[in-house]
Simulated scan of single mutants.
Amino acid sequence: MSLSNWTIGQIWIEDSRPEDVAEPWVTVVAGIFMILTSALGIFINLFVLQRFLCKNMSSFYIMCSSKTISNSMILLCYVIFNGPVSVIRRYYGPEFLNMILNQMAAYGIYVQGPMTQVCISFNRFLIIYFATSAKQTNGKTATIIALSICWLISLFVTVAGIPGNCTNIFNFDILTWDNLDPCVDTLADSVMYWIGFLAVISNTFNVVVAIKLIVSSTKPHMDSVASKRRRRTSRRLFFQSCFQDWIYLIDTINSMYVYTWCAEILWQFFFTIFSNLFVHFADGCIMLFFNYEKKRVLLRLPGKKKECTFINVTF
């Protein structure tokens, strides 16, 4: 089957694009899959955000909260547009809606995640190497300023190409993104190389932190409860940062290289749309896994009195 007249009239076709359109049942199944996965991802990210808001909002939790918001915004694009459009096999709303939502998912809000990851890795670096200074300094103001700059960059990338139609659109005929103009490839390359550069910086901080943690583990420590808890927390947050960096790096490789290896529709779908969707779903799962705390409930048996000895300790 050839591309539909609408598709031919709207997109600039590259050699790496699929040559055939997807079968109707494939499009419907993919749309349902996008809706369900994105809805579950939004629920997980908002649940994690709620848990973070109940904590003492340190700089680390402020940055993680920002990531849950950007993740939810991208997943929302699949819930309200890409998924339903694929299910009903029909576009709704103005064409601008397709442009703005997919520009957010593919480039604009997407770059928010890697930029925030650099801030998180740098935060871990400061805590591990300069713990005393970090405790004495209130870094919340600097964190909010850094995140504000990241969000402004995301907004700029989202709207920069819209006046000249230099944007992505979602094409349900081939279950992936297509271009209104060849300039989108230039924008895509710029964004992907920027994300790769951010990944190098973030993982450099991770390697430096890993060296510190390994060296620290070989030294004798006080076996106090507080000391063990600090070391356990440092390792936990370090691994969280690493996993979050790696999933963005994998998605970047998928978006730049892997999807071009085959022109089959399902291959293109899994290494463009699904990869973009899944990274924000997985990011929320990682934050939930590494920050999940079981609530401890104390049960008192009826009819029994508990004897307590109170000790006053003066420090």
Rank of each mutant, 00 (worst) to 15 (best):
L155C: 10
F170M: 11
G164H: 01
V184P: 00
V191C: 06
K212P: 04
W177D: 10
V209C: 12
T176L: 10
P163N: 02
T204F: 15
N179Q: 15
V207S: 01
G196E: 08
T176Y: 11
D178E: 14
L187N: 01
G196T: 08
G161V: 03
A160H: 13
L180C: 10
N168M: 12
I211E: 02
V184T: 02
A188I: 03
A199N: 09
C183F: 08
N168I: 13
N203W: 11
V157A: 10
W194L: 14
S190E: 00
I153G: 00
C183M: 13
V184M: 02
N171I: 15
L213W: 09
L180A: 05
W194C: 09
D185H: 13
C183P: 05
A160W: 15
D173M: 07
I195D: 10
L198N: 01
N165Y: 08
G161Y: 05
V184D: 01
T158F: 01
V159A: 03
G161T: 03
W177H: 13
V207I: 15
V157K: 06
G196R: 07
D181F: 09
L155H: 00
S154G: 12
F170A: 05
S154W: 10
F172Q: 13
I211V: 09
N203K: 07
L175Q: 11
N171R: 15
N168S: 08
V208F: 11
G164M: 06
G161L: 11
G196Y: 14
N168G: 00
P163V: 02
P182Y: 11
D173Y: 05
F172T: 12
M192Y: 14
G196H: 12
V191N: 05
I211L: 04
T204G: 13
A199I: 07
S190T: 10
L152A: 07
I169H: 07
D185A: 14
W151R: 01
V159K: 13
V191W: 00
N171S: 13
L152F: 09
